[in-house]
């Protein structure tokens, strides 16, 4: 994997320590905080959205919508211990997947989960080690170690919002095989990140 590709995310995670201050400024409705938020996460958010929708003009609109959603919902965010970047990326991904689902007529099958994943509470009360640079390096290594099939199903799920059944149809593989690949990929990532076992 190209190190440059990971750089924005690493940067975002490295700057995680300053997110609380930025979140507090957003809550105070300081316009400059919005500009700083965009300068910090605009490129990676736009890149994720563009990867999903594959249309520059649409990606612009959805990126704008993503940041406005942060602006309008930041009061619910835990500015002391929250992680702005992952929350923003979750919103960016969900806006983009919603768009391709509506544009290609797919049913909003698991729209509920996606909306749930935008909940700012999911990105609060996080242990500080979650967003440190060691974690980011482990993420890079873990993604590199996935085999092509595992990486493929992760990309289909993350960037196209496909269910496992839809992936099986798209890849021409039995559903059981897809489920095995997905679980194996996620297990590998958990183990690489040292968070495999539930608390």
């Amino acid at each position: 994997m190209n190190g440059l590709i990971l750089f924005p995310l690493l940067l975002a995670l490295e700057f995680g320590d300053t997110d609380p201050e930025l979140a507090a400024r957003l809550k105070r409705r300081e316009p400059q905080a919005m500009a700083d938020l965009y300068d910090r996460y605009g490129r990676i958010a736009y890149s994720v959205i563009l990867r999903i929708v594959r249309d520059g003009a649409v990606a612009e609109d959805l990126t704008q919508e993503t940041f406005l959603r942060i602006w309008n919902r930041c009061q619910a965010f835990d500015s002391e211990r929250g992680a702005l970047g992952p929350w923003l990326l979750a919103i960016a991904r969900n806006r983009a997947i919603d768009y391709i689902r509506s544009s290609d007529g797919r049913m909003a099958r698991n729209a509920y989960e996606l909306v749930e994943m935008e909940n700012p509470a999911l990105f609060a009360n996080l242990e500080s080690q979650i967003v440190n640079s060691d974690q980011a390096r482990r993420i890079r290594e873990a993604l590199t170690k996935l085999n092509p099939s595992q990486r493929n199903v992760i990309e289909l799920a993350y960037f196209e919002g496909l269910s496992q059944t839809e992936m099986a149809a798209k890849m021409g593989q039995p559903l059981g095989t897809i489920k095995t690949w997905v679980r194996a990929a996620l297990k590998n990532l958990r183990e690489q990140l040292g968070a495999g076992a539930p608390a």
Partner: peptide, 10 residues
């Protein structure tokens, strides 16, 4: 948090 890291694949 782990899933948000998949953004780096873009």
């Amino acid at each position: 948090m782990r899933v948000s890291s998949f953004a780096s694949l873009a």
